[in-house]
């Protein structure tokens, strides 16, 4: 499970086997990600942030914690704890925009912006107003 491409043939585990965790894990289904002993072979430790052209920005002010974004996120990138949406995992978000599409609030609590716009506070400050229907 070495990551160095220059490693020799005898540096790898037989059978190209990969272990998800470094230590024994009991009840992984009820262990939150922050408490898991991820191995460096687990893709959780990798990033696809450079795939993004657009990125979602989260505005907590309008969020009703419906969890639509959580369930429909294909990349496990909506971080919900204790039934509350608390943020986006920007290492794993590929910028598909599903979370924005399924967000039911008005105005939306998530909006897509160009990846290179870094000042999120400014984006939130300029958040669009409620749309009249």
């Amino acid at each position: 499970m070495a990551k160095n491409e220059n490693n020799g043939w005898n540096d790898f585990d037989i059978g190209a086997l990969l272990f998800s965790f470094d230590k024994e894990t009991k009840n992984i289904a009820t262990t939150l990600q922050e408490d898991r002993p991820y191995s460096n072979s687990n893709s959780f430790t990798a990033s696809v942030a450079d795939w993004r052209v657009m990125k979602p920005v989260f505005n907590k002010e309008f969020c009703i914690d419906c969890q639509f974004c959580w369930i429909y996120c294909p990349d496990m990138s909506i971080i919900s704890r204790d039934k509350k949406m608390i943020g986006i995992d920007m290492d794993h978000c590929k910028g598909c925009g599903i979370c924005v599409e399924v967000c039911p609030t008005n105005p939306k609590s998530l909006l897509m912006y160009d990846e290179h716009l870094e000042d999120e506070e400014a984006l939130i400050a300029a958040w669009p107003a409620k749309e009249e229907k």
Partner: peptide, 8 residues
């Protein structure tokens, strides 16, 4: 307790 990925 030691999940392994086989056949990568």
């Amino acid at each position: 307790d030691r999940p392994a990925t086989h056949g990568v």
